[in-house]
Design a protein around this nucleic acid. Structure first.
Length: 143
DNA sequence: GCCAACGTTGGC
DNA sequence: GCCAACGTTGGC
């Protein structure tokens, strides 16, 4: 199982929009960067990702799960780009801001800090655990 | 195949 | 509003 980070402007596609999509999830469409796309092609069903609001907010607001592996992006008329589908898992009780991350020595190697323009990024297990703890987030139990 | 020019992203 | 970082384009 791998961990990722998905970046979006709240004005374009927000956490609220993701919640509205429900358990069927929503295409993470519109990515037109080959490295970001490569990360999506590597994703497997069940992989988890942070949901990050860029722009004014600049914070991780929740967790999403991959529910469909890469397939053609429906917003690409040429059929050249691929994307995955993700569903909302849960919001962070305490959103973790970019400033929090930059102020945490163990997180300064995150891609979010090193390559701020990449819209879909890998996250290491260590980074994942620490950020979840900072956000007061625990995976909900299945029933 | 190189690289200058240009456009976009996103943090500040 | 600015600008650094990065990707893409196009002339050579």
């Amino acid at each position: 199982m791998a961990y990722w980070l998905f970046k979006t402007e709240a004005g374009t596609f927000s956490w609220q929009d993701q919640l509205k999509a429900g358990p069927k999830g929503e295409e993470w469409s519109g990515v037109r960067n080959s490295l970001a796309e490569k990360h999506m092609r590597a994703m497997k069903i069940g992989d988890l990702g942070f949901f990050y609001h860029s722009g004014d907010e600049r914070r991780i607001v929740g967790v999403v799960r991959v529910v469909a592996e890469s397939h053609p992006d429906s917003t690409d008329a040429q059929g050249r780009w691929q994307c995955v589908d993700v569903e909302a898992v849960d919001a962070f009780p305490k959103p973790v801001t970019l400033a929090d991350i930059k102020a945490t020595p163990r997180l300064t190697n995150m891609v979010l800090v090193k390559n701020s323009r990449l819209s879909v990024q890998p996250v290491t297990p260590g980074e994942w655990d620490l950020v979840c703890r900072m956000g007061g987030f625990q995976m909900p139990h299945k029933r």
